[in-house]
Design a protein around this nucleic acid. Sequence first.
DNA 1: TTGCTTAACCAATAAATATTTGGTTAAATC
DNA 2: GATTTAACCAAATATTTATTGGTTAAGCAA
Lengths: 219, 219
Amino acid sequence: MTANDGALTQLRAWLAQRNLPSDGRLPAERELCELLGVSRGELRKALATLEDNGELWRHVGKGTFIGSRPVEEFSSVASIAEGSNPVEVMQARLLIEPMLAREAAINATNSHLDEMRRCVRIQREATTWRQYENADNRLHRTVAEASGNTVLTALFDQLNAVRRAVVWGRLRDTSNHPPENHHSFAQHDDIVIAISERDREAAYQAMYDHLSMVRKNLL
Amino acid sequence: MTANDGALTQLRAWLAQRNLPSDGRLPAERELCELLGVSRGELRKALATLEDNGELWRHVGKGTFIGSRPVEEFSSVASIAEGSNPVEVMQARLLIEPMLAREAAINATNSHLDEMRRCVRIQREATTWRQYENADNRLHRTVAEASGNTVLTALFDQLNAVRRAVVWGRLRDTSNHPPENHHSFAQHDDIVIAISERDREAAYQAMYDHLSMVRKNLL
DNA sequence: TTGCTTAACCAATAAATATTTGGTTAAATC
DNA sequence: GATTTAACCAAATATTTATTGGTTAAGCAA
């Protein structure tokens, strides 16, 4: 037993008989050491013990809180994009979007399917590259939404935001004409057909094949 | 031709001969109308024309910017959690985390593996439920990090934040003893072993089995 | 020496305040 | 009647101030 056990037991007793606020925050060190009648140094030793024990966590400027340290909130899109690159983004798309397509094959509603068909039609009729890209974004977004899982859809949105931020920093194809890449048309058709036929694995495979080609063209 | 064409052509000329900052922001209206020698009302008419034309976008408090209006950032963790539920979150975990484990089997470094082993050891030695949960979170986070893809790791973090926000609003097991669920120990071991043996599909399956049991216990 | 107290200071965070910005309205002016 | 001007608003940002945990060093006591 060391000398700081006094402060530690006193702190534990105080915590036990107190109803802390809902956020689990306890008073600032300078107040708390007065309440307990111990010096700040002793109090900090006791707090350090509890923190090592995982019973509370502290952070400069925030305070001291009961419970386990919360995971840091996700970083901003900009900071993620800064530490990443098109290859990583493309790999993430290849892993996530086929999965979304598979779920969409189960849960897509008729309005989802109508929207997908509208997107592929607009793409075929597009006269500018921007129109084409807008329709492409909307198609992929609709597939994500059709998965029927709002969390997965939100994750897709974030991935998409990162993708835009990453390619933003790179050179862009300045040509204004729509792509002549007719493979893309057929692949988009395959995706929509597989989903509308409720063929899970075909939807997965169609999206995978499509993104594989996108990646190939990227390199 | 209407009367505001004067301001419009003058604005277009000014834009043409100016090198705007990299963010595409142009001076505040009150400055710009002095620079151009037109009234603010006329300037705003001209700006409205260009905005309708999609050549610039404006926002209160921010300013006026050349180009097309940026897509809105993804929603906050709180708002996602509000519109979701534990079932959706669990489904998302079942789809994403096994995939992360598979990638981790390829890219995990020795320090990642050491950290994973440390987590399972702490879990076995845990005397409080909080300690156990801390180690569990850390283990899953380390697997995500070991995937070697910063974008996927960021997505995992967001999913994890949503998960915490969702279960936060529900009742919590208030018992303070660590779980006696020894299946979890074995399953965590299986995950770490599969990753350290670089067995991609075994890692995928181990994580899938583990989360399936978590889901079963949840219901 | 050894350990504790105290005070001052630091950087990170949060809270509060001030400023700037596009949007709107109404009286003044030509 | 149309335009200018000025004032005001709410959203967003910028700046300032206050608070918090973390650290250090001098003073003090056992």
